[in-house]
Nucleic acid binder design. Structure first.
Length: 358
DNA sequence: AACCCGGGGTC
DNA sequence: GACCCAGGGTT
């Protein structure tokens, strides 16, 4: 299968050119200071679908707060989510802590270095498994992500749709043939750096590329057309009324989200879905749902927040507790001092509201 | 295989 | 707006 594509490809010349370029041009990144598998692991989870520049400050703070697997295992989940606040894909943080606890109890705190054991940890999929095995343990395992598929689809002029699951498996096979057995760690990181700096999605700078003499897409003049990728669906709009409920003591009501699904275990201001409740029945619905009497007042703002699969339209209203209540009975709700808001992890959409009321 | 799951940067 | 990013889990 891979033989056909690779039979006339100069693998050793390509490897030398790539590794020499990496040696001269590798980026200075905080998780490259050493080969501590915990640091590599944390960085790889943070880097999933997230740019390097976004990750760097989170990485520093996270390692400062949780320097070892033992520290992370012993932490409160809310603390971990707070350290993840603003990064997105929060299940990454919850899965990471779950996996780290398993490492502490099942592996005596030593991160496993076999594909089977590593891959069985929560949140460690095929890519992350390969990345840790190669970068931290120097094993010749493929770590195929969007970068790798872009670089190799151009290098080998492959037109398969990279949105398809089977295409990723194809690239893993190619990588097993192409990867340097001498320095698999540098090899995988070199492809990532090349994809981030030279072989970019748009307008790749092929003239600066150490691989252009090996690149079939460049030879065929189709580098800008590759990789082929099926278009994603448009996110679906969902309208809500969001209530900022205050009492007379500078306190406000916040709500803990479900422990499953979107933004699990994060906090928010109560949201009422306008797909189920009309704007005129908000107060009644709120009382039956949460057992709390509130008056909804003026609209403060309209917030639009886009996720990968949906768009929230938040109509933010000020509201007040009708009686001077200082306790709430519903388990989801909490009445807190405004000054304590910063102790709770909120998604970015609701951080916009926090700014509004400050 | 399709869908769910965030947020930010770029053009 | 469209697209992309060091993807994984669930169904």
């Amino acid at each position: 299968m891979t033989d056909q594509i690779l039979q006339d490809f100069n693998i050793s010349g390509f490897q030398k050119a790539l590794l020499h370029w990496y040696d001269q041009n590798k980026r200075d990144l905080p998780w490259r200071e050493n080969q501590d598998p915990y640091r590599i692991w944390v960085s790889e989870i943070m880097l999933q679908q997230t740019k390097v520049d976004t990750v760097i400050p989170y990485f520093h703070h996270f390692l400062e707060k949780f320097p070892t697997v033992q520290d992370l295992a012993a932490a409160e989940e809310q603390e971990v989510l707070k350290a993840w606040e603003g990064l997105g894909y929060y299940s990454r943080a919850r899965n990471l802590q779950h996996a780290v606890r398993e490492v502490v109890t099942e592996y005596n705190g030593e991160i496993p270095s076999t594909p089977k054991e590593l891959g069985s940890l929560k949140g460690v999929g095929p890519y992350t498994k390969g990345a840790i095995l190669s970068i931290a343990f120097n094993k010749p395992e493929p770590a195929v992500d969007g970068n790798v598929m872009r670089v190799f689809s151009r290098l080998l002029h492959i037109e398969d749709d990279i949105a398809q699951a089977r295409t990723k498996k194809l690239f893993e096979e190619y990588t097993r043939e192409l990867i340097s057995s001498d320095d698999p760690s540098s090899f995988n990181q070199a492809i990532m750096d090349l994809g981030a700096t030279i072989c970019t999605p748009k307008a790749p700078t092929c003239m600066l590329c150490p691989l252009h003499e090996y690149c079939r897409a460049f030879a065929d003049g189709v580098q800008e057309k590759l990789p082929i990728k099926q278009k994603a669906k448009k996110p679906k709009p969902v309208p809500y009324v969001t209530l900022v409920i205050k009492n007379r003591h500078d306190q406000v009501i916040i709500e803990k989200r479900s422990n499953q699904g979107l933004l699990a275990n994060l906090w928010q201001f109560p949201m009422i879905p306008l797909t189920e409740v009309s704007i005129d029945h908000i107060e009644n619905w709120f009382r039956s749902e949460y057992g709390l009497k509130v008056n909804m007042n003026a609209k403060m703002d309209q917030i639009k927040h886009t996720f990968s699969h949906l768009v929230w339209h938040l109509e933010v209203h000020e509201a007040e507790l009708v009686e001077d209540q200082t306790v709430v009975s519903d388990e989801r709700l909490k009445l807190i001092n405004k000054s304590d808001i910063s102790q709770y992890p909120f998604p970015v959409s609701h951080q916009k509201i926090i700014k509004l009321i400050k």
